[in-house]
Nucleic acid binder design. Structure first.
Length: 493
RNA sequence: GGUUCCGUCGUCUAGUGGUCCAGGACGUCUGGUUCUCAUCCAGAAAAUCGCGGGUUCGACUCCCGCCGGAAUCACCA
C-alpha cells in the first residue's frame, strides 16, 4: 500500500465546527492506515479574516479528538514552517518563475475596473471570465519584468478540456469555460489559497489532497497550475458535505453548527464523536457500528467513503456516547473512567471524597447519555432532596394507599433496615431485607419499592433500590426514610 | 444563468446484473427484566431503490432522457 501523506489545512478564522472536522478525520485515518504522515498546515493568508486565538483552538480541538499530527505547529517537521504567512517568499519565488516562463503576469487593473467587467458581462448574460479582459501583452510585459509587491500576480490560463480522477467521486471532467486567470499573489504580497496550497502540497510531498467537495469546481484551474509549474498531480479526494439537520444545505456556523469543543463541554466523549463523524459518510461494509480510533484506522479505506452528503443527527451522537460510556467502563473500570467525569459533577458533590463519587458513578453510569447529565442525575446522593409529598401521594402505585398506610410502611421499612449492622450494609443483604420486607408487608414491589425509592431520592428515576441504599449508606438512608414518615404524619393532621 | 457533482426506509447506510417481494444501525412503537429511569433482550411498523424510457432471459445495480437537490463562478479559504 502506498504511504499516504495527507494534510489538514484549516484557516484560523474561528473554531472548528462539526461540519468541517471530518476533513481532518479522513486524512488522518488514511495517513495512519497506510503508515504515512498527517500534516497540519495553518492557512493564514487572509489577514482580514484572521481571528487571534483561533490557531490554538484548532490545535486543542485536534488533540482532544486524538488527531495528532506528524508535521506542523508545535511538532515541526522537515518542510516547515507550517504557517503560510511565514512562507511568503516561497510563493513569490514560484510566482516569479511562472512570470518568467510567461505563465503568469502582474496585473495592474484596479479592482473597481474588474467589478465593472463583471457587471457588464452579467448584464450581457455571458459568463464572466477575467481572461477575456486581460490587458494586452505589451502592456503587461514591462510590469511583469520588475514586479514588486502591491501588484497582484495572475495566472495566464490555458483553457482546454480537462479530466481527472477523484478517489471518492470517480472520473471527472470539465470544459475550458471554468478555467480563468486566477489570482496567485494578492496585492498584499500574500498568496491566495488557490496558489499557496499547490506550492505547499508539492513542497510537503503531499500525496492525497483531501478537502470538501466545494473545491471540485476549482480543480480544472489547479490542474492547469500543476501543469504550468511542472508539478506531479496528487491524488484528489473530495469529501462530501455534512448537511444541516433541516434543509439540504451543508452544515455551517449559520445553521448552528456547534464547535467541536462545545460537544466536549456537553460531556461527549472524543471517542464517541470520532466514531460518529467517521461513520457519517463512511463504512467498512460490515454491520459494525462501534469503532475505536485504532479500529477505524484499521478498517478505513477511501473507496468506501460516501459520495453524497450526509445529514447530521445529534440524537445519534447521544447514542454513540452512551455506547462509549458503557464500553469504557466495562473495559477499563470505574476507576479509569472516573477522571473523565471530574468537571461534570455538581457543586453539591464538591466536598465529597472521590471514593464516594466513584460509587455513585458506578451505579448511574449506564443511564448517562452525556456526561453533563451527571449533575442533575446524582444530586440526591450529595444533599437530602426536598421532601415533596405530592410526588409520593400522586404516584400511580401509591395513590391508592392512605397516608396512614404509607407511614406505617415506612416505619416497617426503617425497623427492618435498622437491623442490618453497618458492616453488613451491602447490596446483597439489602436485597434480602427488601425481599423479606415484601413478605412482611404483603405489598407488591411496585408499591413498597416506589415508596422507598421516592423517599430516598424524590427523583424521577434512580438506580436499583438496593444499590441506591448501599451507596447512600445506612445512616443517610434511615434518616431520609424517617423524615418522610414524619412529613406524611404531619401532613395528615 | 454557466459549469460540475449527487439522488436506496424519517435519518446514517449495505447492495458492483439473479442469493433483494432490498439487509443493518439510529429514531419510533410493542412486550420482557421484583418500583422508576436507563441498560439489556425479544418483536413490529418503516424504502413501488427520484421519475420515464431502453439494453438483458433477468436491473437498485449498465445506457439515455427528465425531474429534484447541492456545490461553484472573490485580490475567502
Amino acid at each position: 500500500m502506498q504511504k499516504a501523506i495527507s494534510r489538514f489545512a484549516p484557516s484560523p478564522t474561528g473554531y472548528i465546527h462539526i461540519g468541517n472536522i471530518r476533513s481532518a478525520i479522513y486524512p488522518y485515518l488514511l495517513a495512519k492506515k497506510t503508515g504515512g504522515k498527517f500534516i497540519l498546515r495553518i492557512e493564514d493568508t487572509d489577514q482580514a479574516r484572521f481571528v487571534s486565538g483561533a490557531t490554538d483552538l484548532i490545535l486543542e480541538t485536534l488533540k482532544w479528538l486524538g488527531l495528532d499530527w506528524d508535521e506542523g505547529p508545535e511538532v515541526g517537521g522537515e518542510h516547515g514552517p507550517y504557517f503560510q504567512s511565514q512562507r511568503k517568499e516561497l510563493y513569490q519565488k514560484y510566482a516569479l518563475a511562472l512570470m518568467k516562463k510567461g505563465r503568469a503576469y502582474a496585473d495592474p487593473t484596479p479592482s473597481e475596473k474588474i467589478d465593472e467587467y463583471r457587471k457588464s458581462d452579467n448584464e450581457k448574460k455571458i459568463p464572466f471570465l477575467y481572461r477575456n479582459h486581460r490587458p494586452s501583452d505589451s502592456e503587461l510585459e514591462k510590469l511583469s519584468k520588475n514586479w514588486t509587491e502591491g501588484t497582484p500576480i495572475r495566472f495566464r490560463s490555458d483553457p482546454k478540456p480537462r479530466s481527472w480522477h477523484d478517489e471518492v467521486m470517480g472520473d471527472l471532467s470539465a470544459g475550458p469555460e471554468v478555467q480563468d486567470d486566477i489570482i496567485l499573489i494578492k496585492k498584499d504580497g500574500l498568496p491566495t489559497y488557490n496558489f499557496a496550497h499547490i506550492i505547499d502540497d508539492f513542497e510537503m510531498k503531499v500525496t492525497h489532497v483531501m478537502r470538501g467537495v466545494e473545491y471540485l469546481s476549482s480543480t480544472p484551474n489547479y490542474l492547469a497550475l500543476y501543469e504550468a509549474l511542472d508539478f506531479p498531480i496528487p491524488k484528489f479526494v473530495s469529501l462530501p458535505h455534512i448537511l444541516a439537520p433541516t434543509g439540504n444545505k451543508k452544515l455551517g456556523k449559520r445553521d448552528g453548527a456547534k464547535s467541536v469543543t462545545e460537544y466536549r463541554a456537553d460531556g461527549v466523549l472524543p471517542e464517541a464523536l470520532l466514531n460518529y463523524l467517521a461513520c457519517l459518510g463512511w463504512n467498512d461494509g460490515t454491520e459494525k457500528e462501534i469503532y475505536s480510533k485504532a479500529e477505524l484506522i484499521d478498517a478505513f479505506s477511501l473507496d468506501r467513503v460516501q459520495n453524497s452528503g450526509a445529514r447530521f443527527d445529534e440524537v445519534k451522537i447521544s447514542w454513540y456516547n452512551g455506547q462509549w460510556i458503557r464500553k469504557l467502563v466495562a473495559e477499563e473500570g470505574i476507576d479509569a473512567f472516573y477522571p473523565r467525569t471530574l468537571e461534570f459533577w455538581g457543586e453539591e458533590a464538591k466536598n465529597f471524597p472521590d471514593e464516594y463519587k466513584k460509587k455513585v458513578l458506578g451505579i448511574i453510569f449506564d443511564r448517562l447519555k452525556v456526561l453533563s447529565d451527571l449533575r442533575e442525575m446524582t444530586a440526591y446522593f450529595f444533599v437530602a432532596p426536598a421532601i415533596n409529598l405530592d410526588l409520593v401521594l400522586g404516584n400511580k402505585f401509591l395513590k391508592k394507599l392512605s397516608e396512614t398506610e404509607l407511614a406505617s410502611l415506612l416505619e416497617l421499612s426503617v425497623s427492618e433496615l435498622e437491623k442490618i449492622p453497618e458492616e453488613n450494609w451491602n447490596a446483597e443483604t439489602l436485597q434480602n431485607t427488601l425481599n423479606s420486607l415484601l413478605e412482611k408487608s404483603g405489598k407488591k414491589p411496585a408499591e413498597l419499592f416506589s415508596l422507598i425509592r421516592l423517599a430516598l431520592s424524590f427523583a424521577p428515576f434512580s438506580p436499583a433500590l438496593n444499590l441506591t441504599l448501599e451507596v447512600l449508606g445506612r445512616e443517610t438512608s434511615l434518616a431520609r426514610l424517617r423524615a418522610v414518615k414524619i412529613a406524611i404524619l404531619s401532613d395528615q393532621q
